[in-house]
Simulated assay, not measured.
Amino acid sequence: MKLQHYLGGLEGLGPVWTETRVFVEPWETRIFGIHTAMMALSTQLPLPETPSTFKTVWTWADLRKGAESLNPFDYFKFRYYEKWLGGISGYFIENGYITAEELDALTEEYYADPAKPLPDGGDGAIDERIIQYLVEGDSPKRSDMTETNLAVGDTVSIRNVPSVEHTRLPGFLRGKTGTIETVYEGTYVYLCDTGPDGIGPAMPVYCIAFDPDVLWPGNAEPNFTLYADLYATYVEAPADDETAKAA
């Protein structure tokens, strides 16, 4: 494990509680709406112009980084949208939209009077842009051609890349070997550069099959295969070429 948000494949973590409701409290719908609006106003897609003062870039990756940079104890303490709220609030402070002092003062006002009306706002052009963004989406695919020296059937090793704020590589796959099941057509970007983690310019993406006995030696159920879609930066030919040929 490298970060607290990637615990898959680990044992002895205690009981798992799964919340089946999409939103637990009404305020969570507003957080989802704010996040969606921020993404729609950030995208470079040809969408309607708006009078919004939001001029920076916000992506799913920024949301994830904001949540995952929490102290691990806080990460496990807060619910899903509470982490979103923390990440979004930190982003607005870091980018100068509001100061921490202003945010604290507003928070205290609503603690003191929960029934206080929320500020009026909204603009038809912004609403139109958000709706169009939701309908059209934004594909990470950047080309139709894939240039790679790896092919279906190749045995590959999964790198143990450094991860600081955010990673797309599950901890339990690091240092393991698998077999390429699919080389996806085209090259793909992520929503932001992940720094030392390695995702940046558009690159190939592979579906890699893993034998559970390789991941959890002597402690895996039989007759199943685990598949993972991984960016090329995480994948490399084994150091021992003979091992790859033998496989």
Rank of each mutant, 00 (worst) to 15 (best):
Thr50Lys: 09
Gly198Lys: 01
Asp197Met: 08
Thr194Asp: 12
Phe23Thr: 04
Asp213Leu: 03
Arg79Met: 11
Lys176Val: 01
Glu101Asp: 03
Phe54Trp: 12
Val24Ala: 15
Ser157Gly: 02
Asp120Trp: 09
Gly14Tyr: 14
Ala232Tyr: 12
Gly171Trp: 05
Pro140Ala: 15
Thr29Met: 08
Asp144Trp: 14
Met39Thr: 11
Glu109Ala: 09
Leu41Met: 13
Thr187Arg: 14
Pro140Gln: 10
Ala228Asn: 05
Leu215Tyr: 04
Lys141Ser: 04
Asp127Lys: 03
Ala232Ile: 08
Thr155Asp: 04
Leu106Pro: 02
His166Asp: 04
Lys245Ala: 07
Pro196Arg: 05
Gly8Thr: 09
His5Phe: 13
Thr167Val: 01
Thr99Ser: 15
Ala125Val: 04
Pro212Phe: 05
Leu230Gln: 03
Asn149Tyr: 04
Leu10Asn: 15
Pro46Asp: 11
Ala246Ser: 11
Arg21Glu: 09
Tyr184Lys: 08
Lys2Arg: 05
Val156Ala: 06
Tyr111Gln: 11
Trp216Asn: 07
Asp197Ser: 08
Asp229His: 11
Thr56Pro: 01
Asp138Ile: 02
Asp138Thr: 04
Tyr97Cys: 02
Phe73Arg: 15
Gly178Asn: 04
Thr194Glu: 14
Ser143Asn: 06
Glu49Gly: 08
Asn160Met: 01
Ala246Ile: 13
Leu85Lys: 09
Trp17His: 13
Phe210Gln: 00
Glu128His: 01
Tyr81Cys: 10
Glu94Ile: 00
Arg30Lys: 07
Phe210Leu: 00
Leu10Thr: 15
